[in-house]
């Protein structure tokens, strides 16, 4: 008798999540995106507007850029929305997507403690700043997770003429976590860290941290969006996914992106019209 009761209860619980139910209401897509779009609060602002207009629910998996692209590669997402142009072009050349759409950009900022041991505060030369951090052996937190920000960080070291793989030492800590975790770690250990501006602005635990270097053109951070190739992954919801992409790059979508501000400061600059971005 008790076993029958347990079975009934189980059936009831499972029926709440039954496939029929999720298919019936499933005008939804899965978007693999980056922690920066989520942690910056952009999606929380933007998605309700899109859903209200189209009735499409967007389920966002926030990962590092590399992981998000892998999610697309396995066919577990309909759309990827990331920021590492070289990795995105690799994705295209594998045939994982047929077209990449530039959407917007923001920029990276080099964050550091107010004590500023590397004396870089207020400068706008990222290469000089990185050299100084290395020279002083000032603590530096790296995402170390193949994310867009991590890839950009590695590029900046390279452009500064530093082979970070060879030079890195106890002062350089690779934590293998998301942007927020990296900022928390930097805050707790008075370290420098490269962050996208959006996540930084939305970050609540700034305490002793401040912007050290900003405004260098090399710290430009382009976002692109791609539909996962439905020929490779037949389960991809290409119509709904394309609808999302089309809206992001439409005049309306671009305006919504530009309108998202924290403390009056815009976080992302729409640039879908810049075909070279």
């Amino acid at each position: 008798m008790i076993i029958r009761r347990i079975l009934i209860a189980t059936a009831l619980c499972l029926s709440l999540f039954s496939p029929q139910r999720s298919i019936a209401q499933d005008k939804s897509i899965v978007v693999a995106s980056t922690t920066s779009t989520q942690d910056s609060g952009l999606f929380e602002y933007l998605l309700p507007i899109f859903t209200k207009k189209t009735g499409i629910t967007v389920k966002v998996i926030a990962q590092g850029t590399g992981q998000a692209l892998d999610t697309g590669r396995r066919g577990d997402a309909d759309v990827v929305f990331v920021h590492a142009k070289s990795a995105e072009e690799q994705f295209l050349s594998e045939g994982q997507s047929l077209k990449r759409y530039p959407v917007m950009y923001n920029d990276f900022v080099l964050i550091g403690p107010k004590s500023d041991p590397a004396k870089i505060g207020g400068t706008s030369d990222i290469a000089a700043a990185l050299k100084s951090i290395m020279a002083k052996g000032a603590p530096f937190i790296s995402r170390g997770d193949r994310s867009g920000t991590h890839i950009a960080e590695l590029m900046l070291w390279k452009q500064a003429g530093i082979d970070i793989e060879k030079e890195k030492n106890a002062w350089y800590k690779s934590i293998g976590q998301g942007m927020g975790a990296a900022l928390n770690t930097a805050q707790a250990s008075s370290a420098y860290v490269l962050s996208d501006r959006g996540t930084w602005l939305n970050f609540k635990n700034k305490n002793d941290l401040q912007i050290g270097v900003q405004g260098d053109k090399r710290m430009f951070n382009q976002y692109g969006v791609m539909l996962v190739n439905p020929d490779k992954h037949p389960n991809v919801k290409k119509d709904l996914g394309q609808q999302f992409i089309d809206w992001l790059v439409s005049v309306e979508g671009q305006k919504v992106i530009g309108d998202y501000k924290i403390n009056g400061e815009p976080l992302f600059y729409p640039n879908a019209n810049d075909s070279g971005a």
Binding site: D39, G178, M179, G180, A181, L183, N184, F203, K204, N205
Partner: peptide, 10 residues
């Protein structure tokens, strides 16, 4: 986990 990563500790 998410709110921690956003630095929204409270």
């Amino acid at each position: 986990a998410l709110e921690t990563s956003k630095g929204n500790l409270p």
